[in-house]
């Protein structure tokens, strides 16, 4: 006797009358509906850990970064630290260094010196807790034919047993920290903005993941977290900044922030420190004695896609 016969018999006993097809189906639908409602209500009352971790009371009512008081920030940072501890098993310290008055960061890159060894890419991935899988990299090193400058013909997937490859030169591209940033204008919820020291930042907890900014950016500098980032426990950088390199949640945008958790404390960005050839220069453009000021005075520096009027803070130059 299968379950349908059994159910039919049970109903007949209860109702004391024979069951035809119509009454049977009615009963079956009602039972199914009750079961579905019960299942749904149990999910509301006892939701899965995925839901509970993602949507907590504190997270839902967390304010925008600019509206947070220092006390709010303390609470939020403690929450992020405990969540990271729970999820990745690592003790981290979330800090929030503020922009230094009278400082505007500028990056200069010597294309004659860059040898395309991707040391900067590796340092950036390690410093900024970038997802290894799915892979996210802020810096793209483009390989170009010597004597040409058509970026559409560049190759970013080149192999290099001994770089520089013959007849090639290399152009690393990352976020240009534009002074007229199209990504900021595109954001419908103001989750991204430009800081006084020139760095375009994202409040990862305010971002709704609509990806308008990714489309708006002409430099492909913004990246979307399609999945929870996968990073090995021992590779997580515990020195984290709220607006920069803390481990991003799923479904938000992220981008290069000139390592603001380092640079606002006086250090150089990780990509610069890793560069073996000294092609990268970083400093305060408002200081006339800084290296970047001297480069912009003495070298013929240029920016990428100048015609778009994005006014980048990232300059390229060639030696002589």
């Amino acid at each position: 006797m299968d379950w349908a016969d059994r159910l039919k018999k049970l109903l007949e006993e209860r109702l004391k009358k024979p069951v035809n097809r119509r009454t049977f189906l009615k009963g079956a639908l009602a039972t199914g509906g009750v079961a579905a409602v019960a299942k749904a209500s149990s999910e509301v009352l006892h939701p899965s850990p995925y839901i509970t971790d993602r949507y907590t009371w504190e997270k839902f009512f967390q304010k925008h970064y600019k509206e947070m008081t220092p006390r709010d920030k303390e609470k939020v940072f403690a929450r992020i630290e405990s969540e990271t501890k729970k999820k990745y098993g690592v003790e981290v310290k979330v800090s929030d260094p503020q922009p230094i008055p009278g400082v505007k960061f500028v990056y200069c890159l010597n294309l004659s010196a860059c040898n395309g060894s991707r040391y900067c890419v590796k340092a950036c991935v390690e410093e900024n807790n970038l997802s290894r899988s799915p892979q996210i990299q802020y810096i793209k090193v483009l390989e170009l034919e010597r004597g040409s400058f058509n970026l559409e013909k560049s190759n970013r997937y080149y192999e290099g047993e001994s770089v520089p490859n013959d007849g090639k030169f290399y152009l690393p591209a990352q976020c240009m920290q534009c002074d007229n940033p199209p990504c900021v204008k595109a954001c419908p919820v103001q989750a991204t903005w430009k800081e006084p020291d020139g760095i375009v930042v994202i409040d990862y907890d305010w971002c709704i993941g609509c990806r308008y900014c990714q489309v708006a950016c002409p430099y492909e500098a913004r990246h979307f977290n399609l999945a929870d980032p996968e990073i090995k426990k021992e590779e997580i950088n515990p020195n984290q900044g709220y607006l920069s390199n803390r481990i991003r949640p799923r479904g938000v945008m992220e981008k290069c922030t000139f390592c603001l958790h380092r640079t606002r404390k006086g250090q150089y960005p990780a990509c610069l420190e890793a560069c073996p050839t000294g092609a990268r220069k970083f400093g305060n453009i408002l200081d006339p004695e800084s290296e970047v000021s001297r480069i912009l005075r003495n070298k013929k520096a240029f920016v990428l896609k100048e015609e778009l009027n994005t006014v980048p803070s990232f300059f390229y130059y060639f030696d002589d």
Binding site: S117, R118, Y119, Q137, K140, R156, Y157, G160, S162, V163
Partner: peptide, 13 residues
């Protein structure tokens, strides 16, 4: 003369 180096692997296609 600066020596040639081995580059780190490219991003996944």
């Amino acid at each position: 003369k600066f020596p040639k180096l081995k580059a780190f692997p490219p991003p996944k296609v």
